[in-house]
């Protein structure tokens, strides 16, 4: 029998090892797998490479891993946000390696890894500092830059509902990096608000098919970045 349901957050992330490359889903607060990230923070795994659109805010989610000194490299498109002080400080002090990638190139590099594509040519970033040192090619009179896939050891993703095969349905704009990242990691770990019986998910609505998912852990009442950051600010001002 195929059963990818995992009993606890700690169990779901137990084999994430020092030095792992991890795709982390989410765009700002939407789709951020905070419960999985905080379990990883508690586990203390170090020397991580995090691939994610943002770098977290306050000391929540990715920012907590950064604050704990667990991350050696971050690959992202937009690390700076209101209250992203942890990455600001680490970067200024030279304590973290930052690879800045245009957002669409980031998504497509991840998708390419999942789709078995060895790279692709994109017009994005031609003529900018982010294209320096990369192979250029003119195709039908237009200039492109070669971009390579970003594969990960693990993906940490948040979805709305999942079943024991690993099929996923997302909630609204939570979907963002979920589907491409689920494809692009050796081990994909997903926190869902609700586990449902096989057959309950509408096959027409499944945005990540089971084959791309390895573990599903139910978190009925997930942590909220907005609430946690507000609490931190309240404490800081107290």
């Amino acid at each position: 029998m195929m059963n990818k349901i995992t009993g606890s957050l700690d169990e779901a992330i137990a084999d994430i090892h020092d030095g792992a490359v991890i795709h982390v889903g989410g765009f700002g607060l939407a789709g951020s797998p905070i419960d999985l990230l905080h379990a990883l923070a508690d586990k203390g795994t170090r020397d991580l490479t995090i691939v994610s659109n943002n770098a977290g805010v306050g000391r929540v989610g990715i920012a907590r891993l950064l604050y704990n000194g667990q991350v050696s490299k971050i690959v992202c498109s937009f690390p700076r946000q209101q209250n992203s002080t942890v990455i600001d400080d680490l970067h200024r002090e030279g304590k973290i390696e930052l690879e800045l990638v245009p957002q669409g190139t980031l998504a497509e590099r991840i998708r390419a890894a999942g789709a078995g594509v060895g790279g692709f040519y994109t017009p994005t970033s031609v003529g900018t500092p982010l294209a320096e040192g990369k192979e250029h090619r003119v195709i039908d009179g237009k200039e492109y830059v070669l971009e390579l896939p970003i594969h990960a050891d693990f993906a940490l993703i948040k979805a709305e509902r999942g079943d024991r095969w690993g099929n996923l349905v997302y909630h609204k704009a939570q979907r963002n990096f979920g589907p491409p990242m689920c494809m692009a990691a050796d081990t994909t770990i997903v926190q869902v608000r609700q586990v449902v019986d096989l057959g309950e998910l509408d096959p027409e609505a499944i945005a990540t098919p089971s084959i791309f998912v390895d573990r599903v852990v139910e978190v009925p009442d997930p942590l909220s970045e907005r609430v946690l950051v507000a609490e931190e600010e309240k404490q800081a001002n107290a």
Partner: peptide, 14 residues
């Protein structure tokens, strides 16, 4: 101090 590019380069390219 900390650059961020987001989707701007993709938007102007496409």
């Amino acid at each position: 101090a900390l650059p961020g590019v987001g989707g701007a380069m993709d938007l102007v390219a496409g």
